[in-house]
Design a protein around this nucleic acid. Structure first.
Lengths: 173, 173
DNA sequence: TCCTGAATAGTCAAATTTGACTAATCAAAT
DNA sequence: ATTTGATTAGTCAAATTTGACTATTCAGGA
């Protein structure tokens, strides 16, 4: 559902072909979704069958033909509906990466501390990268801001967990 | 991968049958994963074929037979490996719910504000529920703490977004 | 000119995930 | 004693998702 909303929203801003959509999503909206190329094509096919978008073949230079999609009026209506549903709902993300934390007591504390320090470094790198994204205008900016906000909160949290482990396992000097 | 880790981790603490595993996960670990019953059975089958767990039929009273699973030594080894990999990695969750935010400018500000207020209410309800979970002992507690930490950060963030909208759309009295 | 590697555009078989179902047992109200 | 609804235990066909692949074009160096 949200994935359809994403494709419709992008097509609403400018008609695009499938490859372009999938690339844009993976480059700029990876923090929202893991949708990959073949899934994008699958959903585009389905939305075409639903009458939400139309496909037309275009050729530029002597590159091979491309399927360019654009919204129909039904597609616009579906976008409006899906957008309202999405905004009104709070659907928490699933933190699959937390699964390990549930079994942290299977390891001794020095090792747990060492592994989570590696995690912290990976998180720091991602936070730095997110902060370095140059500001676009428009609402897409909100997504980046949310990502930074979230990663910062994650850092705080992870440091608390590490401090909790260190308290009982790291030798004071 | 993380889903296998989850099943192995639970089976490591106590042997269980498939239904029990799936129920426990949906009741207590919904913040980590959306894994559902048929997926659990699928993964259990696969892990049995890999030699990580063994199945044995048990009967209690005159209820129908149940498939009870328990770890093999290879399963223990796999658990150790997967746990270390999981803890060392930082794999951010995908915020599919953010997709709507990327298209917030498709609506006028009063409506956007109204819809996000609904979202805020849903978030508040989930936060209250998460805070009300009675503390178990052990590492499972960390998962709950993370959830509360995250939902609190979400609330802060959403309030900032709402304030930003209100600034330009709500009439001062 | 020719070769190599990257970018473009998309497809396909296979893996994974799920909604909806079956079927049995139990609890408890009628 | 029997109907109803909840709980237990699991299955299955269908939907969704993906890794790995094809095939073409372009850019730059040897």
């Amino acid at each position: 559902m949200d994935r359809e909303l994403l494709l419709l929203g992008l097509l609403r801003q400018a008609e695009m072909h499938g490859y372009q959509l999938a690339e844009f999503i993976q480059r700029n909206l990876a923090s929202c979704t893991t949708l990959k190329k073949p899934t994008a094509y699958y959903l585009l096919d389905r939305m075409e069958k639903s009458g939400w978008i139309t496909r037309s073949s275009e050729r530029e230079g002597n590159r091979p033909e491309r399927n360019v999609y654009s919204l129909t009026p039904q597609g616009e209506a579906a976008f409006d509906r899906l957008l309202r549903e999405n905004l009104a709902r709070y659907q928490p993300a699933a933190f699959e990466n937390d699964i390990g934390l549930a079994f942290l007591d299977a390891l001794d504390e020095p090792e747990a501390h060492a592994l989570l320090s590696q995690r912290r470094a990976a998180l720091a790198a991602q936070l730095a990268q997110a902060r370095a994204i140059p500001p676009h205008g428009g609402s897409h900016q909100l997504v980046i801001q949310h990502l930074v906000h979230h990663l910062t909160a994650e850092m705080t949290w992870l440091d608390e967990v590490l401090a909790g482990l260190a308290a009982s396992s790291v030798e004071p000097e």
